[in-house]
Amino acid sequence: MSKVTVVGAGVIGLSVAHELAAAGHQVSVVASRDASASVSSVAAAIWFPHDVEVSGAVVDSGRVTYQRLEELARDPGTGVRMRTGTVLTRRPDPDLSWTRAVPHHERLAGGAGVRCTVPLVETDLYLGWLRASALALGVRMRTAEVRSVTKLLREDEPDALVVAAGLGSAALLGDDTESFPIRGQVVRLANPGLTEWFIDGDNPGGLTYMVPRGNDVVCGGTGEVGSWDEQIDPRIESGILSRVVALVPELAGQPVLSRAVGLRPARSRVRVEKVAGHDRPVFACYGHGGAGFTLSWGDAIRITELVGRVAE
């Protein structure tokens, strides 16, 4: 057993802490805000590698996460559901490499898209379940602003440290110029009884998706690269609703339940690796873009394996 500190309490940080504790490590999580206030809570949280380079490692992590979430869907208390829907394609040569991780999928006639069954996460339920599960494994959590990896190593004296703080990770590590935000805006409508989702990433009007959950439907969205603006834009919301209703007329006139903006923690590629330049092992696990829930368990296992090699 080794003592490990994890920085970050979003879906990535909590998943990493959970897997490290399950492997027998003594784990502490420190973050400036808990999961309910993180960008993870804003996500539509459907399994799909959005705003991330779909590399072989991403497909592998996505497959592992798909399998774990499919298992968790057997327990309604986790907030995970298996749902069927459609990824629309409007290009003649769409990248469908992600389908290698999806056991149940089929191409639509004429290349109009892919119909598949994937995990869907109700963020409030799932993040609460994940936090409780980590605590049950002995993970300790505290709220604090982390401004320096060096200072945290000195104060916590861990055997290893994992930086999984989303957009804040690059500044903490100080060796990364490849990270950037992608602004995502959503509006949540009352659910008139829909169960099937869709994603239309190449819609001429802009990114469009609709993800029905229990009592609401998450409608989006935007993909504004480099924007740090977290304010609701009524003009953008109007465009989102117009595009979504054009594809799903049943949503016309449904009341708005809530609105949100989140900044996806993007990077040229996901960073899951040991970081050089520290007197103790430091690992990075961030840059997941809009695929945090999609890659969470796979990358948590990758980090656990890296820490385990050091602890041997």
Rank of each mutant, 00 (worst) to 15 (best):
V307W: 00
A44C: 13
L125D: 04
L172P: 07
G128P: 06
A300R: 05
V310N: 06
R33Q: 13
E312K: 14
G292D: 03
F180L: 09
S32V: 03
T123M: 05
A260R: 11
F198W: 03
T5N: 08
A311S: 09
D159A: 08
E19L: 02
Y66A: 06
S179Y: 07
Q26R: 12
A9H: 03
R140W: 00
V11E: 02
P92D: 12
D229T: 04
Y286M: 04
V54E: 07
Y126P: 04
V272L: 06
L306P: 11
G298V: 10
P92Y: 00
L88I: 02
L88A: 10
G174K: 09
T143S: 12
P92A: 12
V261Y: 00
G262K: 00
N215T: 14
M1E: 01
V162F: 05
V27S: 03
A164C: 08
L88K: 08
L194Q: 13
L247A: 14
V282G: 07
E19S: 10
T304M: 04
R74I: 00
T195I: 08
A31F: 00
L96S: 02
L130E: 09
S148P: 11
L251I: 08
V217C: 11
Q231R: 14
L207N: 11
L194Y: 11
R267T: 01
D176V: 14
V139G: 06
D202K: 00
S15A: 15
D34K: 07
R188E: 14
G201Q: 11
G77D: 13
D175K: 10
L251H: 09
S28W: 07
V27G: 06
M141Q: 14
N191R: 03
L152A: 07
D200A: 09
R91Y: 03
A9I: 01
E70T: 14
E19V: 06
H50E: 06
S15P: 02
L88C: 05
A22S: 09
V42H: 14
L20S: 01
A171M: 08
V244G: 05
G24P: 03
L88P: 01
P49A: 10
G205W: 03
K151W: 07
V244T: 06
E178S: 15
E250C: 05
S238D: 14
G193S: 04
T65L: 11
G24M: 00
H18P: 02
P234E: 11
T304E: 10
T143D: 01
L72F: 13
G205R: 11
G168I: 02
E196N: 13
D93R: 15
A9V: 02
R154C: 06
P181G: 09
R68F: 10
V211W: 00
V256Y: 04
G174Q: 06
D229Y: 09
V42W: 00
E106K: 12
